[in-house]
């Protein structure tokens, strides 16, 4: 059921067959079909080209296409695996697969590491951590003094950087997350399990080509 393929859809740039994507991700074919409905909505919000542009991503996250945000930028860059400035359907599904409740925890830990490794040096550095804390403070109503921010960052580094070389490597990150499992809670989107309920239109659409 729900296995509809249309000629129009196949012409979309970067379109990949749901069966292929389902085989490579925690999603079922029906869930990939439902994600395609969401993808169409997001990718045609500003420029109707079937690709998610950075502005469309920001618009979806913040209802505002001009609101730049450190996290949105990093997530966009990680989803844009080909680094061609847009997110294609296959990239969208594979990346969201990491956020599926059934995705391997190791994948979530690795994705979070890449997310926080702002400058992609292979390490999370103290300055990057501070930058993220300052960014979230800027986004929220939480006001902390410079001293308090320094204390929080120092304390975190003291615990996570077990080798004491001023940077957190993937192994140290893994250990740190195992001590604080709640740190990867934001790497799971429970909603992905109900995606077919949220976007069921593909189930009833017919194969008829106009």
């Amino acid at each position: 059921m729900g296995c509809v393929s249309s000629k129009r859809r196949k012409q979309e740039p970067g379109y990949e067959e749901p069966t292929v994507l389902a085989a490579e991700t925690p999603f079922t074919v029906s869930e990939v079909e439902a994600l395609h409905e969401l993808f169409k909505k997001l990718s045609n919000a500003i420029i109707a080209d079937g690709l998610i542009h950075r502005e469309e991503f920001q618009l979806a996250l913040f209802r505002n296409r001009n609101r730049r945000n450190l996290f949105a930028d990093r997530i966009f860059d990680l989803f844009d695996v080909k680094r061609n400035g847009v997110i294609e359907f296959g990239e969208f599904v594979r990346s969201l697969g990491v956020f599926h409740p059934n995705a391997p925890v190791a994948d979530k830990i690795a994705f979070a590491f890449r997310l926080y490794d702002l400058r992609q040096t292979g390490f999370i550095e103290r300055e990057e951590l501070k930058e993220m804390v300052l960014a979230l403070l800027h986004e929220s109503d939480l006001a902390l003094s410079e001293d308090v921010v320094e204390t929080i960052v120092d304390k975190t580094f003291g615990e996570a950087d077990t080798q004491g070389d001023g940077k957190i490597d993937p192994e140290e990150w893994k250990e740190f997350v195992s001590k604080h499992p709640s740190l990867i809670k934001n790497m799971t989107l429970p909603y992905l399990k109900d995606i077919t309920l949220a976007f069921p239109s593909f189930v009833v659409r017919s194969e008829v080509d106009e």
Binding site: I75, F99, L136, E139, I152, F176, H180, S182, N186, L189
Partner: peptide, 25 residues
């Protein structure tokens, strides 16, 4: 209290570091 939290905890709990809005209709 934020001071007693570790920095990653603060970040991961932040709404601005969440993809939830992608699914809002």
């Amino acid at each position: 209290k934020p001071v007693s939290m570790n920095a990653f905890e603060l970040i991961s709990r932040s709404q601005s570091f969440s993809l939830d809005n992608l699914f809002e209709k």
